[in-house]
Design a binder for these strands. Sequence first.
DNA 1: TGATTAACTATTGACAATATCAGTACAAACGGG
DNA 2: TTCGTTTGTACTGATATAAGTTATAGTTAATGA
Lengths: 1294, 348
Amino acid sequence: MLRYSSICRRSHGSNRIIRQLRPLSGTVFLQKPSMDSFGMDNRATSEDIGFLKSSVVSTAPGFTTFDNAQAAAQAGETRNIMNLWSLLEACLHSGYMDRAFSILKSLYGLKSHRASFIDDYNKFLAKFAEKADDLKAVDKKLFDDLQKSFPTVDYNDKTLAILIHNAIRLSDSQETRLKHCRTYLRMAVSGCRGILSNVEVLTVQDYRCLINELELIELNDLPADLTPLVVANNLSPENNEEPRRTAGGTDGSMIPQTQETTKPAFQEQVKAIPKNADDLLAVDTIGMKVVRHTLLGLTLTDEQRKQIKEFNFESASNLLNFENGQDNIDFFEIHKNLKTEEEREAFAKALDEFNQDRQLQLEHRATDAAKERWKHDFEEAKARGDLSIQKKLNVKLWEWFNQMLPLVKEEVKRCAEVASDSVQEGTLSAKEKKQNKARQDYGPYLTLVDAEKMCVITILELLKLNSTGGVMEGMRTARAVISVGKAIEMEFRAELLLKNESYVFKDINKKSHEFKLLVQRARNTFRSMKIEESKILWPQESRAKIGSILISMLIHVARVRVEGVDPVTQEKIQGEAPAFSHGYQYHNGSKLGVLKIHRSLVHQLNGERLVAAVQPQLLPMLVKPRPWKSWNSGGYFYTQSTLIRSKESPEQVAYLKAVSDSGAIDNVYHGLNVLGETPWTVNRKMFDIMSHVWNTGKAFLDIPGNQSKLILTPQPPRDADPSIHRKWKLKNKELANEFSSGRSARCDANYKLEIARAFLGEKFYFPHNLDFRGRAYPLSPHFNHLGNDMSRGLMIFWNGKRLESTGLKWLKVHLSNLFGFDKAPLDERVTFTESHLEDIKDSAENPLDGKGWWKQADKPWQALATCMELNEALKLDNPCDFISHVPVHQDGTCNGLQHYAALGGDVEGAKQVNLMPSDRPQDVYSHVAKLVVARLEAAAAKGDENAELLKTMIKRKVVKQTVMTNVYGVTYIGATHQIEKQLSNVFDDYKRSYEMSKYLTKHVFASVRELFEGAHLIQDWLGDCAKRISKSIRLDIDEKTFKNGNKPDFMSSVIWTTPLGLPIVQPYRESGKRQVVTNLQTVFISDPFAVNPINARRQKAGFPPNFIHSLDASHMLLSALKCGEKGLDFAAVHDSYWTHASDIDTMNVLLREQFIKLHEVDLIERLKNEFDERYRNYLQIIKIDKTSDVAAKIVELRRKLSQKLGRQFTLADEIYMEKKRIELLESEEPSENAEGAEMTTTVSLLGEIEDIGALEKSGDSSGIMVLAPLKLPQIPPKGNFDVRELENSKYFFS
Amino acid sequence: MSLVTKSARELTQIQHYYGFRYVLNTIVHERIFDKLKVPTKYPNSDRLKVLDLYPGPSQHSAVFYNRYRPAQHLLMDSRPDFVKHISDLIARNKGCEPTLQLYKHDPYEWQAYTDLIDVDKVLSPSNCSRESIHDQFLVLANLTGMIGEGLFMQWLACIGNRNWLQRFGRVKILVWVQQCTAVKLLAKPGDQLRAKCSLVTEAFTETKLVAAMNTKKSGGGSANFSDNILSEDRPVMFDQQDVWPPSGKNICLLEVNPRDHSIDLDNFDYVSKHLLILKSTPLYDSLDSLGHGAKEYFRKVVQNQKLLEKCPKELTLAEFLHITEIFDKWPFKPDIYLDFIDVFQESD
DNA sequence: TGATTAACTATTGACAATATCAGTACAAACGGG
DNA sequence: TTCGTTTGTACTGATATAAGTTATAGTTAATGA
């Protein structure tokens, strides 16, 4: 045995805290802010909904920011670490242990990473041990490594867990086992619980062994979730049978077989994994018996009873109804007709249990399912002897798959050879050498996923990307290679998760139903943990590389039959051509790599039902989404999703992590969870109608018709005027554009309908996450309630609620709203609906053959759904008894302006956006139109001809878009265009029309300004702040950025905290894209870890609207939270809130309360305080009057310092000096303190001036550039509106 | 009566040059016209009509006018500062009035020409057979500004199409362009900068370098002319200080003589555009980017292996035309009219 | 006289990308004493 | 063996591409009170 004592000794010093990110030291001179510094009164503080806690965290001194000196270097290192990590992971899983070890050495070399290095080493050790057959070897390896290779690193509890696990596994006698385990447990860094908490290392069997056989630990030392499992296994030894084996089951293709070893002991264990994986995937027999039993115990029709009896609960093919003509059980029908609460509960439970398994399959088997279908179709065709030339799509795909597979396998083999250095370099050509060099890069990634799967994924991805990216019959290469690479990565991750999971739970049998539930719970915990833990992402570069390798292989093999015309004989000829072809197209003079799909294949893709080949991913979920618990844990079970969709903003993620860890944004999580927990189902009647309309292939409402081919206009004669040629080109582009947008709309509608078909009768949920401003979006992209009218019309709440009389009223109002009749008082809207009862009946009963009244609605599909609902209700003797499922909407009237008005305190403005009680709902647009007319009349009176001419044509519609987009910071020119569009039919001359629009825009802007005086001042203020911040300099800025002249790169983005505590970082930075060489071409991709200078223009333009959006998002989440608390089903589309008709009144009260709560605090003041805190001691460059006293003083000081230095005194020097001064001032040493106070810098000279703004001179050459402390402008005065008046405004949302 | 130009001082005081550059030194212009031997090409100057596009300070125009006294010399410019200047110039030289005119339209607009010729009928060029260069109509232009290169490329296309001013015959164009543009246009097979526009220039025109700037230390920020061209065309050389404004890219004067041709324009366009993307990749591989299975087809059809070993930038015009012909005979050739990108409309 | 507007110029995250080559820094190999 | 020197190469940055030109912010000259 080894000298443990030596390790033990060293371990004493290892009370270091293991941290992922060591805070940078560059922020010492920032003082710790306190809650007081945000200037909140007590009332607000006691009721913090997230802001205070969160903002304190994110402005704290230790917090790593992205705009300081180390940021760039740090970013480089982060990128390095990430690349090394993913490579390490890949090498470990591919079994390239030597390579893995050298990567470890590289990681060790990165100082900033040293603290968490042991985690990386543990991964290596675990893999190493897995392959070892002797504990001694493992032990020695560890000892040697820590002694020689990585002397500054200490082991941690996980290291010990790995040792224990292997001690149990490898020891040949109980005695040695006991000895080893005891030793290891004694070495624990933070107690034996610390070791035992590593559930991803220790198996249940290990725990059992430690408790029962070795008696080294107590039951209560175990992690809580595992205790029942271990106990249960303890208590029922008779259940310890071998897991059920599937006869002739799948060959383990789910799991890459990269771990074949020669040692029998290990082999057995490895082999067990695939079996178990399979076991996990197959639906449990016992469990489903219970489900079936429960279902049959409910009140059912005979038909349903029969269906359930015949329903194969275990077959994966019954997963979802993607095949035609095959009916699943309509669970919704059952649910709807259950009479008692008990029955419903029992049913819900059974269904949920069934769906748990289905969800797992749904997320996992997509690629396999596709492959199976191709194979099935191929074999069917073969059996028929069908060798027709025009093969069915799936048959082709199967053939391609089979041809591609050997190529991929060969490539994988080559990579393995390169990795193991078994290639004779000398014999290779230059080209091959280069290829081998590239193999070193992508090789490790290529061996992670089974070759078969990679082929399927490649084919599927390319088919899915057909006609995207503006390419007519194909796709952009860059997109394709990355998509394929990413899909491979996703597959790897999901498999890894599953593998780990089955490993941990491998010796647990699930034959008992009760026990199964325990396992399920423990499994969920484990999964969350595992997902949270995984932070490794493959670099885009590697994704692109493996993507391109696979695609080029597919290009090589995939061929289609084609038809052509012989140019000489004009005869049709048959031929064969590659299905995919790589080429380029130009756009605006820039090249674009494209992957063309052959026209004959495109036709086939359009003709056949795509879903038959392509399994859509990221569908709605069959069970409640995993609740959000941290920034990267929530949503789907096996697909990792992040709370915020900040594709490429590690900056926001850093803030988010910090804030999330401190528990400051729990309200965000809760709100989001409410949205995710609302169950939905498909409105079957609507689906039937839509699918009927669809199948006709004709255009109908927003479904475009089925255009078979694109017809271009004939070319004008060669010698026609160039302008004619130009028009011809434009016309053709327009035609093509129309064609492909029609095609993609139809394709999109097809997707929606197919997904809807699959979910007919199912209960499903939408997992949500946020965009960077905090707005919530469902994760499933094709089919969700944010979609267009059609997808909204397809969805209803799973739960039904009795209408009651208020619900009936609201349903009527809702219908009226959907017709666009939403500006009248509620009772008039009710009257509107009641006056159309005949139409409603007709629409509901003969939607397609009747008068079709519903088609006139603004939102026809939803109107039809509401007509049907209403019609059903009215059939009853008492319509109030009707159980309603249709969601009723309440929309904010110009929600952005509502927030602006509240912020600005504009009384009249508030009134116009219904923040104040009123008999009738107010309409801002009409009001603005009125104001504009008044202005025009005044001008006309003074003899302005334009005004005279225009004053009669100002309608609501003319100003509507401008008023609306005003919130989003529309520019003067943009608004002029909008108005021109409205006026274009009045004036025939474009020039005149544009003139008039320009004139009118001025008045519209003035009117809006007048109405929302305070709001506008705030808008300007926000813009001004953003501009200053994004042009500000941190004191510890990297000096290297001064290289280009005297102006540094600006690095600070605008960052703020929403009322709910969510930190928002505007992600507008320079893109920093680089060219990356791949097999097909170079691709242009951005490096997500680079810290680039910010884009001040976008920061400025984006901030005002983004701030408002962050507010409306907060309002929505708050409302969701409250509605959830009150037990309402709640859904929202940004500023449109949905619930059951009968709950509308409750919801309206809640959302008004929340709005008041949000705005009771002076948000602007709070924002300014936060800014002042976050950006204190930042500098800005301004131009001041040359002739002023300060300017003279500064010039003098510069001259003196320049003399002293003997060279030009640069801006960088000035900054450095000021940094020194601040450091001294904030030092603990009184002497240094005094020294700092004595110091005079160019900045301190300005700091003495009270009103710097007065000195600022934007103009000509009479100014001088100086550094000044960053000072944000004063908050503009607020109007007199008090939000509390909102309480009784019933038209706030309506 | 001679057109008296303004002094250099006055000319340099014009506020905006709109990014264009002009040679102000009249001596340079005299040397240029000496070299061009205008009278031998336009023997009947009393029937010569000249369209002068973007004349700017009009030094070039003035020297031409004074030397040859064309029947009509029309200056087309719409830029306020130059319009002012030219109006002033004409006003000062009342005697030139009937033959020297200003047409205040933007030469960038196609409509300016149809207005000029078909609507306002200020200028009516005669038609001339395509056998030879038009001997009664000449176009002078300065395209040294930002839009210049783009506009010139379109004019080249017009020469190919025989529309625009080229509908009257093979009208010679004397045009000032940026040096970097000229270098590309005059690139020979094998040159680094050999591009589609070099091919087009070669196919539709016979273009010569008339005058170029002295570039002492390979300056100007862009590539220089090859010695080949300099020795072949023996351009008039002038200096930085002959040009105004003083800063900017180098400029030079080209003589563009349209040629007659019978080229399959669309196929030629498609083939040259695509092949020149991989301009240093041997045809063996680069041909594949012409469409599905192009590589197989061309390897089968093209016998000349030597040709396939060459890379696009080394190909001569004749070889390109040869490939175009083969391409046109390909039964499975792609739709060359669908070779563009739609408006981007991606959400996710 | 200061301020306001019109016009021009620069900037260009929609050259919403890619091929090619020159120049550079740096390591390996070479080779001559 | 050492130490220039050459050679190879990985990386960066610049430039061209097509060929009707997008909008918008910032500057400067001119205009009107």
